[in-house]
Simulated assay, not measured.
Amino acid sequence: MTIEEGTHTLPDGTQLYTKTWKVGLSSASNRGKGPDGTTKAVLAFVHGFSDHCNAYYELFPNLASSGIEVRAFDQRGWGRTVKRPKDRGNAGGTALVLSDIHSFLLGVSPPPKTPLFLMGHSMGGGEVLNYVLHPDSPYTTSNTRPQLAGVMVYSPLIGLDPATRPWAITVFLGRLVARIIPRAQRHSPLDTKLVCRDETVVADYIADELCHDMGTWEQLVGMLDRGLWLENLQSGDLTEGKLLPMWLGHGDADRITSWAATKKLSGVLGVKGDVTFVSYEGGYHRVHMDPGEVRVRFVKDVTDWVLKKAEGTEAAAE
């Protein structure tokens, strides 16, 4: 495996920090790769709230070791993309968020005949679902769009768990403030006890200065509105045969985003398309780093689904 850092320049000149985990040379016996380290699939990844692409531990290296190249970036307002403190959390509204994802994906050039998948975690999972499902998304409206073979999300922000869901009056007042001072920052920390069952992961999260817990009113309201749109989505709103293959995973002990909302949406999408829902017993929000069997199973589930869909894509192309 080799790792490369870089930048992606957005249409307005903003430079996103990017990182790529490339498939390295390996023996022919390694599953998912040829004797020359052939890349079987490329996975573009979108991180969550108060997070960044370097905070996913061994998830991306493990995927790369199985033949899945990972392309990730720090979103506008987050991680190493931020150059000034006043830019923390300043990701813009939904139109800008989805436009940034679209631009990044158009800049991803997989090797010939290598399928491209899109994955998102938490806030990024909600963004990914809005990107491929919302009628106003550039994926839907643009004449130029990435050729995606499938979509994966886990612990997606569809609905917030009742333990962390804000009062309705708080959301109402937030919308008013967002209209007046959209770029004003608001410190919105997550309850660190709910992040992961691995205490080392929690300690790392608390100590990580790039996980700054800062959003703007515009960003926070947009994030909640994207989730609300997904919560209200019905199968009748979808066009049969137009949905990409989808995989949705969620730990049933997640108290940040709602497991029940993810399961419900999986059922709605499953009426019209190829949808897989996987529940992780006892899993917290960062299920990819939950201790023991959950962590191992999560990586295997993601790897198996991508490689299976990649093989199907290759067969169809031939």
Rank of each mutant, 00 (worst) to 15 (best):
S266K: 05
G159C: 03
A184D: 01
K263Q: 08
V221G: 07
W229H: 08
W259N: 10
L194Q: 05
L233G: 04
G270V: 03
R175T: 14
Y205T: 11
M246F: 05
G236Q: 09
Q147Y: 04
I181T: 15
H212T: 10
L233V: 13
G159N: 07
G251Y: 06
V221R: 06
S155M: 07
C211Q: 00
G251D: 06
N232L: 02
R175E: 14
W229T: 12
A260E: 10
I158P: 00
M214P: 01
S266P: 07
M152R: 02
D161F: 09
C211S: 04
D191A: 09
I181D: 08
D252I: 04
G267Y: 12
Q185I: 05
V268T: 15
L238E: 00
L220V: 05
E199D: 10
R186S: 13
V202Y: 01
M223P: 01
K193I: 09
L210A: 02
A207F: 12
P156Q: 03
T200V: 11
V153W: 04
L148C: 12
L230I: 13
H250D: 06
E240F: 14
T200H: 04
F172H: 01
C196V: 04
R226W: 00
I206M: 06
Q234G: 13
I181V: 15
G270D: 13
N232W: 00
V201M: 08
C196D: 05
L265I: 12
P245S: 05
L244S: 14
V195I: 15
L148F: 07
V195R: 04
P245C: 07
P166Q: 03
T192E: 08
G251P: 05
L265V: 13
P245H: 09
L220S: 14
R145S: 09
P189V: 15
T200M: 06
S235W: 06
V202N: 02
L244E: 12
A178I: 02
T262S: 00
G150A: 07
A207V: 12
I158S: 05
T257E: 04
M223H: 05
L248V: 14
L220T: 09
W217L: 11
L157I: 11
R145F: 14
L173E: 09
Q185V: 13
D252P: 02
S258D: 02
L230W: 04
G270A: 06
L220P: 02
A184G: 13
W259I: 04
T262Y: 01
Y154I: 10
H250F: 10
A207Y: 02
D161V: 02
T170P: 01
K264Y: 12
A163M: 11
A260K: 02
V201I: 13
L190I: 12
S188W: 15
A149T: 09
A207G: 03
S258G: 07
G270Y: 07
S266T: 04
L190G: 06
E199L: 07
L244V: 06
L173V: 15
R165P: 07
T170G: 03
D191L: 01
Q147R: 14
Q147C: 11
T239D: 10
A203H: 00
V221A: 08
G236L: 10
I181R: 08
A203T: 09
K264C: 14
